[in-house]
């Protein structure tokens, strides 16, 4: 447990010191939000329709920004083989995976909240009403995404295509999670409350468990070779 804290603190310290990851993801999220607003705004949609496209836009922006960010999350470990150093300290690979997932989760969740607010303001969507519920449903969505992306980023990290490969292998797998997020947001914005009877919540929980279990089992195998 203490070692997990050490790993997390290390990532946090590096992130704060060079601010690369934060700048990257926030910058992209804000930029994409702006572009999306222009794209939607120019269609002169009425508020009801804007609310309809809002969930899709938010999650799409999330996908792009988060994928970019997670793509480089292994960079500073890879360039100097620091990962080997960590393994040599007897830290089990599962712990490394967990620390990466949690660290990535925090970063992209933070960016997601900002996107929510910014895009909501730009598009005049009343996110304030169900804000807490929106955050609540975002947690399982982003966690499933983080579990999956952290694993696949390790796969893509050593390939020739570098940054290009991760989106190509990650995005196809992310659709069920994406759809769940969009539908849940839709439900909350329409009714102001959590659509508890929807199938999406169990689906998300299943996805969370499945991807995390798969990740924790497959990550050590990836590392060892």
């Amino acid at each position: 447990m203490r070692r997990l804290a050490t790993l997390l603190r290390k990532d946090l310290r590096i992130e704060l010191r060079n601010r690369e990851g934060l700048t990257l993801i926030l910058g992209h999220a804000l930029l994409l939000s702006l572009i999306a607003s222009f794209a939607v705004g120019s269609a002169f949609l009425n508020p009801l329709s804007t609310s309809r496209v809002f969930p899709g836009l938010v999650w799409m922006i999330f996908l792009f920004a988060a994928t970019l960010c997670i793509g480089r999350s292994y960079d500073h470990e890879l360039v100097s083989s620091a990962m080997d150093g960590i393994r040599l300290c007897g830290v089990p690979a599962e712990l490394i995976y967990l620390s990466k997932v949690l660290g990535n989760f925090c970063l992209i969740f933070f960016s997601h909240v900002i996107t929510l607010i910014v895009l909501g303001v730009l598009l005049n969507v009343p996110v304030g009403m169900g804000f807490l519920q929106l955050l609540l449903v975002s947690v399982p969505v982003i966690f499933a995404y983080a579990a999956l992306a952290t694993l696949l980023a390790a796969v893509a990290a050593t390939s020739r295509l570098k940054g290009m490969l991760l989106p190509l292998i990650l995005l196809p797998l992310v659709f069920p999670i994406l759809i769940s997020g969009i539908e849940l947001f839709q439900g909350i914005l329409e009714s102001g409350a959590l659509p508890l009877d929807a199938v999406w919540i169990p689906l998300l929980l299943v996805a969370d468990v499945v991807y995390f279990v798969a990740g924790i089992n497959l990550f050590p195998i990836l590392l060892k070779d």
């Binding site: 050490t6 290390k10 590096i14 500073h76 100097s80 080997d84 150093g85 300290c89 007897g90």
Partner: peptide
């Protein structure tokens, strides 16, 4: 693993951390 020491071709250090922070990090692990 703690009884084995290894140095390879790469430094296995974090460029953005100081000398002390690097050693502190690894010694905490």
């Amino acid at each position: 693993a703690q009884e084995v020491g290894y140095l390879g071709h790469n430094s296995m250090l974090y460029a953005d951390l100081s000398v002390y922070e690097n050693l502190a990090f690894f010694s905490q692990l």
